[in-house]
Nucleic acid binder design. Structure first.
Ligand code: FES
Ligand code: FES
Lengths: 146, 146
DNA sequence: TACATACCGGACAATTTTATCCTTTAATTT
DNA sequence: AAATTAAAGGATAAAATTGTCCGGTATGTA
């Protein structure tokens, strides 16, 4: 579905969000441990997200990553996915035709469209803050135990 | 969404199905041209599908690929996808957790599940024959022009 | 039997994705 | 100012995916 980079990116953003909501700034090491991802690779992805201004970083001692209240409230899953994976999966043809369009649709087009639309809607309407709350309340997990 | 291999595989299967429905057996060259895919790579994918018995091949002059009436009627998109990409995308967690389960669900789990289920249903309920008809009737395309 | 056709199979190459390492830069503390 | 901390950035490596090439094998035809 999504690339590894995107999966790590989303999980990281949610964890950072959860901690930011409690006023804690978190470092790379902590993040990678909490979402069970390769540290250096995760760093690259977070850099991308900082550049895209979807999250904030602070250098130096007591530095790390955080989401501003504004970011927590407004940054959506969709923005993360687009920043990392690009829009291809959210707009592209299921069978890989160069253009998804009703002009020359692939034979799955009309069946596939509603599903893709729902996915878009799902990503568009969920903010990091929202998902972070879910984790905070113990209703969602960013890694698995046992 | 799907890998390139899977996209080519599905498009190829549909084209072969369309021709088989008209009693024509088709060769690799023809297939690659009609679905706009790299010939040698497509050959590899078709081999996989033949081994999985989702389509049939015949060597020698006037040989090529075809779908038996049985295959045309019973082989589903789902079988193609599983044969080429494996079941990961159809069962895996949206955020890449090693297991998708309600025991330790990721924070997207309950929103994501219905969409993934619909995708599964879509793939499970559409046969190659059905999609081939659509192409035959000019309602669907396997490559794009101009 | 000889020959031509077309898929099969293995090896190989290019590209993209995933992942690591190390130096530099910025910020804080002593 | 010096030392310490932590992210930024560049170079590189490993792995997976995508793609090519070529000799082998089966099949039909002359
Ligand atoms: S053309 Fe294939 S999904 Fe729209
Ligand atoms: S656990 Fe993530 S989708 Fe089910």
């Amino acid at each position: 579905m999504f690339s590894k980079a995107c999966e790590y990116g989303i999980r990281a953003a949610i964890y950072i969000g959860q901690q930011s909501a409690s006023g804690r700034r978190v470092g790379l090491k902590d993040i990678a441990a909490e979402i069970d991802s390769p540290e250096a690779f995760t760093a690259k992805i977070l850099q991308q997200l900082v550049r895209a201004q979807l999250l904030t970083s602070v250098k130096g001692p007591a530095g790390g990553f955080e989401l501003t209240p504004e970011q927590l409230r407004t940054v959506t899953l969709r923005q993360l996915v687009v920043a990392i994976d690009g829009g291809a999966m959210l707009q592209g043809c299921a069978l890989g035709l160069p253009q998804c369009s009703a002009q020359q649709p692939c034979p799955m087009h009309y069946q596939f469209l509603p599903i893709r639309d729902q996915l878009n809607e799902l990503l568009r309407t969920h903010t990091i803050g929202e998902l972070a709350s879910k984790v905070q309340e113990g209703l969602g997990f960013l890694k698995q135990f046992g």
